[in-house]
């Protein structure tokens, strides 16, 4: 049923009927597998990929690089867990390389995000430094092309 996960990762809106048909199994078996994956925390959630730019909606995303002093017993988890609590935080990852935590933030304006970083993140005990990068254009998100349609150049017929 690993293929089931791959299909849902591509499109979480496939119906169980469609999934059953693609996998050559029954709807009940699909429903059961999904329930099991949800319970085990393999399937963590389902989200839409929205292109807010199309709505002229003010919507700014930024990637914040954080350098952090790890705590003796907790490592980076303690500070990460505090950061997760902010609802502005969309994603948070522990990174290898020249900084420690990558935080994806969304807000309505550049200023709003800059203020959030200055007031909420920079002020945390263990945070040594921050570096803010604003997203200017999204080309592809979670495997989906944004503002770009791939044309089928094969034509209608070949025998």
């Amino acid at each position: 049923m690993e293929m089931l996960l791959k299909l849902l990762e591509r499109n979480a809106r496939y119906t169980n009927e469609q999934l059953a048909s693609m996998l050559g199994t029954s709807e009940d078996a699909v429903a059961e597998a999904i329930a099991k994956y949800e319970k085990e925390g393999v399937l963590c959630g389902y989200k839409a990929i929205v292109n807010w730019d199309r709505l002229d909606d003010e919507h700014v995303t930024a990637l914040i690089e954080l350098k952090v002093t790890p705590k003796p017993d907790w490592g980076f988890d303690d500070v990460a867990e505090r950061i997760l609590e902010f609802e502005e935080v969309e994603s948070c990852y522990l990174m290898s390389g020249s900084y420690d935590l990558a935080v994806l933030l969304t807000g309505r304006t550049f200023k709003e995000i800059a203020m959030f970083v200055a007031k909420r993140l920079s002020t945390m005990d263990s945070v040594i430094s921050t570096s803010t990068h604003f997203v200017l254009k999204r080309y592809k998100d979670a495997g989906v092309f944004i503002n770009h349609k791939k044309e089928d150049e094969r034509g209608s017929f070949t025998l």
Binding site: G155, S156, F157, L159
Partner: peptide, 19 residues
């Protein structure tokens, strides 16, 4: 084939090669 090629918004299931 000529008819189909001239129409717009045709959804084709007619090719004989990989996508």
């Amino acid at each position: 084939f000529g008819i189909a090629e001239q129409m717009e918004d045709v959804i084709s299931l007619g090719v004989g090669q990989p996508d």
